[in-house]
């Protein structure tokens, strides 16, 4: 292979924007949940369970977690781009992180709808 420095992948702005949008989603969710916890005191397991049986709570939480995983993916990829110089190793690490985050996503849904 030629030893040539290549740049110009023509992406980045969508990820940059997505990171900001997901941050807003997470911030709104955090305030919402804090408000719920303040107004509805969770004293025991049954209170906790009934709260998470509400569809709106489940969907909001799934939205929050998916935002978190997307946000984390962009951030972790940025770290690898900065510090891991070997493209092969970087691709391997990307694959591991994507697999882990996708598993977390499925697992989150399982947990939320399994309460």
């Amino acid at each position: 292979m030629v030893r040539r420095e290549v740049v110009g992948a023509r992406y980045g702005v969508r990820d940059w924007l997505a990171q900001r949008v997901t941050a807003v989603v997470m911030a709104v969710y955090t305030l919402l949940v804090l408000a719920v916890f303040v107004s509805v005191p969770v004293v025991d397991y049954w209170h906790w369970k009934s709260l998470w049986e509400l569809a709106v709570m489940r969907y909001a939480t799934v939205l929050f977690l998916l935002s978190l995983y997307l946000h984390a993916w962009i951030g972790v990829r940025n770290i690898f781009m900065d510090y891991i110089q070997d493209p092969g190793l970087r691709l391997t690490l990307y694959t591991i992180v994507i697999a882990a985050l996708m598993s977390y996503a499925v697992w989150s849904v399982q947990i939320l709808w399994g309460v």
Partner: peptide, 9 residues
């Protein structure tokens, strides 16, 4: 400039 390295580092 729309590039993960050139700008978005």
């Amino acid at each position: 400039l729309e590039d993960p390295y050139r700008l978005f580092r």
